[in-house]
Simulated scan of single mutants.
Amino acid sequence: MKPLLQICTMKSFAFIITATLLTASTCTRQQIEAGFAQTMIGRWEFKSSMGGYAGKRIEAETGKKLVLEFKPNQEFQKTLNDSVTEKGTYELVKVKSIYTGKTDNAIRFNAATAAAPESSRLDKIIALKGDSLSISDNFYDGFQSVYTRLK
């Protein structure tokens, strides 16, 4: 009977260790995401897009100021020369990236504007480097758009 007790004790110990490690890694991941979400809140001006089958590059047009704003309550708004063109909610998610093959930060837009293109509702890979924000389609021949933070 003693070996059975030892086996049960070892299983309980293994379960406790596993549960503790999972809890610790989950807490760390949530803290990183909260910091990431906080960092992206603000107004971002469109600078360029690049992609497509031919690698087309689209620069911001002179006289057209396209701004993407992220609000703390997980709402976003796009404006063109201060006129709202699209608005809705967003959520930050983790998805497998076609670029790295690993799990990356992504954004999912849920546009409330009927005119919003269907492609805006897909998960997009999102990255922050200083005052630069990139949002990339997570499919082949997609586009990557680059924004800079407005101060």
Rank of each mutant, 00 (worst) to 15 (best):
F13N: 07
A14Q: 10
F15S: 07
F15I: 07
F15R: 02
I16S: 10
I16H: 08
I16K: 07
I16G: 03
I16A: 14
I16E: 07
I17M: 05
I17D: 04
I17K: 00
T18M: 10
A19P: 06
A19R: 00
A19D: 07
L21K: 02
L22R: 03
T23A: 12
T26H: 09
T26A: 14
C27P: 04
C27H: 09
T28I: 12
Q30L: 15
Q30D: 11
I32Q: 13
E33V: 12
G35I: 10
F36I: 01
Q38R: 15
Q38N: 15
Q38V: 11
Q38P: 09
M40T: 05
I41D: 01
G42A: 00
G42C: 00
G42R: 02
R43F: 03
R43M: 02
R43P: 04
W44M: 00
E45A: 06
F46T: 03
K47D: 14
K47M: 15
K47W: 11
K47E: 15
S48E: 07
S48H: 07
S49P: 03
M50E: 15
M50V: 12
M50A: 13
G52T: 00
G52K: 04
Y53E: 15
A54S: 12
G55P: 08
G55A: 09
R57S: 09
I58E: 04
I58N: 02
I58D: 01
A60L: 12
A60D: 11
T62A: 10
T62K: 09
T62N: 04
G63R: 08
K64L: 11
K64I: 10
K65M: 11
V67T: 05
V67S: 05
V67A: 00
V67N: 03
L68V: 05
L68I: 00
L68C: 02
F70L: 06
F70Q: 04
K71A: 10
K71D: 08
K71H: 11
P72Y: 04
P72G: 00
N73M: 03
Q74I: 05
F76S: 01
Q77H: 07
Q77V: 10
K78I: 14
K78R: 12
K78F: 15
T79Y: 01
T79N: 02
T79G: 01
L80M: 00
L80N: 01
D82Y: 11
D82L: 14
S83T: 04
S83R: 02
S83V: 06
V84I: 15
T85E: 04
T85S: 04
E86K: 10
K87C: 06
K87N: 03
K87W: 05
G88W: 01
G88M: 01
G88L: 01
T89K: 14
T89N: 12
Y90R: 04
Y90W: 08
Y90I: 06
E91L: 06
E91S: 02
E91Y: 06
L92H: 07
L92A: 10
L92G: 09
K94V: 09
K94N: 12
K94T: 12
V95N: 03
V95I: 07
V95R: 03
V95F: 07
S97C: 00
S97Q: 01
S97H: 03
Y99A: 09
T100S: 15
T100V: 13
